[in-house]
Write a protein that binds this DNA or RNA. Structure first.
Lengths: 243, 243
DNA sequence: GAGTGGTCTAGACCACTCA
DNA sequence: GAGTGGTCTAGACCACTCA
């Protein structure tokens, strides 16, 4: 009988990719900073430039790194989220997103419920910070959302800090807590507006809203944030490209 | 004064990519068939294998080609849509998509309205085929949709042909009309169910539904199909990965 | 064992950025 | 002009598939 041996063959460039990821996690190169040049990395790891290139290319494709010809390769950052929109896929039916403003409703320490704990990979009942806010696109308040993060990863997270960062969450996670969001999964549904949401968004109870449930991950696909957003899509939509 | 000269520098591998795309459009290699080996292509185009590889890699990434180590590189196909789901991003909240059945409502020749014509890049009033149907996932009827395609690209499209292909549209476009869908853009909204949709889906009028508006493209980003789908997301959701 | 794509190297030269 | 990433080549060898 044959043992179900996982072949575990990993090409060299993937091992290099892992080493780079570890250094990124460790914080050797911080978001926005350049990493060493390909030639430099090739020497450090004693491989050819082509092998480093392949590892870096994959990380660039995953948007963990950003290549800039003639300048270097940089650690991706959410620092410019006010100009770049980050992971927000919502936009107006006509025209572009010109302004994006967040208004904090509250920020509280609560206990993780079973479903949330499972998604965040923590214990049920573990402390999480829950923040609620509304988002206005082009001065129209269209999104109400609730985000939950494990409290121990974000010590000192409170309303004051949030206001300081003008509610740009991923940028704040990154600069204040060294937690870099690199990917997310979203599930979308259509739901009817409840009382609270309706009053925040200034619509009638029962109106259809787009519900987006997001799990956001840091390096190594570790879940960091659970978010529930409700969007009034009367004049807005969620855009997605498929191939 | 400097003329705004578009540099128009195109690396060799992109020229090769273009040549490959042209041959695919022309039908030299059909969906499901293998294309020549990298070495063969390199000889034909008088470039190195590495350059061909780079061109093929980009096409594989765009899911126009499919690489299979040890076997060869194949033209992507929608032929297995009943097993592979194609571009459908909807799935049940619990479990997987086990069965997917389509039920044709009607298929008529109509005139393109202004908005639809613009998206399909045809004249307003030009003939389009409009087909309506419902989709059942795991034997639950959850989607009502309407698709429009330019009539001249699909001569002879009718209910009989649709039934023959069991409503697997992209597979039918491909095998019966040599139109290969390679990409799509979707816009999502939450809307209230109207009378017709409510009765087809067996829900109450006004229930929230997920509206998906899709433009599907063939090679060279030529628009081919405009689709409007309404999904009852009570026990289903639209899944999307972001990075 | 022949043929395919996948990895890796070493080296040349190009496009681009910035001082 | 020095330094970066981007392209291209030629060649070796590896992993995988299939007859």
């Amino acid at each position: 009988m044959k043992v179900a041996a996982t072949p575990a063959y990993q090409p060299l460039y993937r091992q290099i990719k892992l080493l780079l990821t570890e250094r990124l996690e460790f914080g050797e190169w911080k978001p926005g900073e350049p990493i060493p040049s390909e030639i430099d990395l090739a020497h450090r790891f004693s491989v050819s430039q082509g092998t480093v290139r392949k590892a870096v290319n994959e990380l660039a494709q995953e948007k963990v790194l950003v290549r800039r010809q003639g300048r270097g390769t940089f650690v991706a950052t959410h620092a410019n989220e006010h100009t770049q929109l980050g992971f927000l896929r919502i936009g107006p039916d006509d025209g572009d997103v010109e302004t994006l403003k967040a208004e904090l409703i509250d920020c509280r320490r609560v206990k993780a419920d079973a479903a949330g704990a499972r998604l965040l990979d923590i214990e049920t009942g573990a402390p999480v910070m829950r923040l609620r806010r509304s988002l206005a696109i082009n001065d129209q308040r269209v999104i109400y959302e609730e985000a939950r993060v494990p409290a121990d990863m974000f010590p000192g997270l409170d309303s004051v800090l949030l206001e300081q960062h003008r509610c740009m969450l991923y940028s704040m996670y990154e600069s204040a807590f060294q937690v870099k969001i690199v990917a997310a999964e979203e599930k979308l549904k259509a739901v009817a507006a409840d009382d609270d949401t309706a009053s925040v968004l200034g619509i009638t109870v029962g109106s259809p809203l787009l519900l987006m449930v997001r799990v956001a991950y840091t390096y190594g696909r570790k879940p960091v944030e659970l978010r529930r957003s409700l969007c009034n899509t009367t004049a807005y939509h969620y855009a997605n490209d498929i191939s």
